[in-house]
């Protein structure tokens, strides 16, 4: 069963010459966490908003849980829930007001709404602040109110558009835990994020979108294969010749005072010994999704810069 099936979907906003989404085709299986990764303006939110029946595609077809977003939006809206990007709770209302009343608006009985509100507020550590107006809460707590509203529902498919923006590391983990619980109940999630660690922690499958096109998608293991080497060694930039490093593998400048060498375990061992011998600081770690993302999107950006550039949406 598919949670989302997108077939050659394009979106050109009114007044724009460029496609925010360009013939995107994507199948998202139900019961999984699917993450869309991309830079600002890559088209992530446009895709999510179209799936969540908030925006009509210019062309192509999207089916959500088997229903067409253009003609059967009413059916879909009973089955989905969303955390919008940059949403804010109402200032004078408390976390309890938001979650409890939202559940009742969606048709829950008083008892069920109470039970579910208490459960999700506890899960996200908002329960103790349940009676405090949102205006007196931190930015992270405000963001968690919106997450709680969406995750307290019985929806089959949850759209989370950058849900952990502005959250501290502890709060992010609370949201991650709630997302895992949601998935464990057999429900589906379409997540967008800038955070690679978040995508690695939560995703069953990932797609990287850039300038309106899906440039790669698959499992985390599939994506890691984009970089053939499996280890990276970061070596302090000062005191070492980049030419020497390139004999160990492919070298990129991290922009943070070090050079990153993508290589294999045996070469990494030799490189580490060299760094110790020269008294250079270094770190060794596995290749991450972040590296894959930078490799794919960074290369595309460089090619674009070389060819004169174009607007994204």
């Amino acid at each position: 069963m598919l949670a989302v099936k997108a077939s050659r979907v394009s979106k050109v906003y009114k007044g724009s010459r460029y496609a925010a989404l360009d013939e995107v085709s994507l199948d998202i299986d139900a019961g999984m966490t699917f993450t869309l990764l991309g830079r600002n303006g890559a088209g992530k939110t446009t895709f999510v908003r179209m799936c969540a029946t908030q925006l009509l595609p210019t062309s192509g077809r999207i089916e959500v849980l088997g229903y067409d977003v253009a003609s059967q939006a009413g059916m879909i809206r009973n089955l989905i829930s969303i955390v919008p990007q940059e949403g804010r709770p109402l200032r004078a209302l408390t976390p309890w007001d938001h979650v409890y009343n939202w559940l009742k608006i969606r048709g829950e009985s008083n008892e069920s709404a109470k039970e579910k509100s208490a459960e999700i507020l506890q899960k996200l550590e908002l329960y103790d602040a349940r009676d405090r107006p949102a205006m007196n809460l931190s930015g992270g707590m405000k963001q968690k109110i919106l997450v709680a509203m969406a995750m307290a529902t019985d929806a089959e498919l949850l759209f989370l558009d950058e849900p952990t923006i502005g959250l501290d590391p502890i709060s992010r983990r609370q949201v991650w835990s709630a997302i895992r619980d949601w998935k464990d109940r057999g429900r589906s999630i379409l997540l967008t994020t800038h955070y690679m660690d978040e995508a690695e922690m939560l995703s069953d499958r990932v797609a990287i979108i850039d300038r309106g096109k899906i440039i790669v998608h698959g499992t985390l293991q599939d994506l890691r294969k984009v970089i053939p080497q499996n280890v990276r060694v970061d070596v302090a930039k000062n005191g070492i010749d980049p030419g020497l490093l390139s004999s160990y593998g492919s070298v990129v400048d991290t922009g943070a005072g070090s050079l990153r060498v993508f290589t294999y375990e045996s070469a990494a061992r030799e490189l580490s010994e060299l760094a110790i011998k020269r008294n250079l600081s270094f770190t060794v770690s596995p290749v991450t999704l972040d590296d894959v993302f930078v490799s794919l999107v960074g290369n595309a950006a460089n090619e674009e810069a070389g060819s004169g550039g174009a607007d994204g949406a």
Binding site: S81, I82, G87, L90
Partner: peptide, 10 residues
Amino acid sequence: KIQDLFVASP
């Protein structure tokens, strides 16, 4: 963005 929540709801 509260309206976004309502649009994507029943």
